[in-house]
Design a protein around this nucleic acid. Structure first.
Length: 276
DNA sequence: TCCCAGGCAAGGC
DNA sequence: GCCTTGCATGGG
């Protein structure tokens, strides 16, 4: 059961909702696990604290409407799992990470985050994003908002190198400037998935994998299948030895169908986490 | 230490 | 079109 008040969202533990799985499955980077086991999460201009009590989780925030949508509480995950569970390779992954929810993230934040993610590791990605928000975000007393396209467009490549972005610095400048000067991220939603992907890939630093992640995590598209190095390593063997990135992506997309994006997250989290 | 990371762009064929 | 190569950085 999910209960919403004006200061918290309460989720009983029989729901598909597991903070550790949701935050540590690699879909998002602006979270912190506190010593208490609570999670502090920043998203766009908002923030929330997720508490774990004996019988329920409580999302403490002054914007419950935002986080109700952010955590995708309008979607029935048990139904999705039911439709996936008999497909190949999925059962153990769901047993491990069945509490994942695919977050509905801010588009620009998600785009920038996954440009930074290219050929990078999660610990470093988090550090770069943290320094980026501290430098260009707005201080809201305890946390920073994600920078606007305009503020990012006004910085130069040297600035992003200073944050540790390395050779991605140029991509960040170019993409921020494209978005700030008229590339309409919202209008991409009206396109079908293939056209939306091509549109996103016209941005600097956005290739097939980053575009899939952005579509999955901030456009609610589930007919995508991001293939990264972990998926590649694991599924070369399990995909009929179809091992080139694009061929594997097509194969797994077709195999899991309309819910491929969910399947991908369950598989990624379980395999990368070493559970399988 | 040395390998590697939620890949991409550019250049060669 | 497909394949190869170079790439900045720091975590483990």
């Amino acid at each position: 059961m999910i209960t919403v008040t004006n200061s918290e969202i309460i989720i009983t533990k029989d729901e598909r909702f597991e903070p550790r799985a949701i935050f540590e499955c690699g879909q998002v980077f602006r979270y912190e696990r506190l010593d208490s086991g609570e999670y502090h999460i920043c998203a766009g201009r908002e923030a929330a604290l997720i508490k774990d009590t004996r019988d329920e989780y409580r999302i403490i925030t002054d914007n419950t409407t935002y986080f109700y949508n952010y955590f995708d509480f309008g979607t029935d995950y048990s139904k999705i799992i039911d439709s996936l569970i008999d497909k190949p390779m999925i059962k153990q992954s769901v047993a491990f990470g069945g509490g994942i929810r695919i977050l509905r993230q801010e588009r620009f934040e998600c785009l920038i985050s996954f440009i930074i993610s290219a050929n990078n590791n999660i610990a470093r990605i988090r550090g770069i994003i943290e320094r980026l928000t501290a430098a260009l975000g707005e201080n809201r007393g305890g946390y920073y908002t994600f920078p606007t396209p305009e503020s990012m467009a006004n910085a130069d490549t040297e600035f992003y190198k200073m944050l540790g972005a390395g050779y991605r610095a140029r991509y960040l400048v170019e993409t921020a400037r494209q978005v700030a000067s008229g590339f309409d991220l919202d209008s991409v939603q009206s396109l079908d998935t293939k056209a939306a992907k091509n549109r996103l890939m016209s941005l600097s630093g956005v290739g097939s994998k980053v575009a899939d992640c952005v579509l999955l995590f901030s456009y609610g598209r589930k007919d995508v299948f991001p293939v990264d190095t972990w998926i590649k390593k694991t599924y070369c063997k399990l995909s009929n030895n179809i091992c080139s990135t694009e061929a594997m992506r097509e194969y797994l997309l077709k195999l899991y169908g309309e819910y491929a994006g969910y399947a991908q997250q369950y598989l990624f989290y379980a395999h990368r986490g070493g559970a399988i």
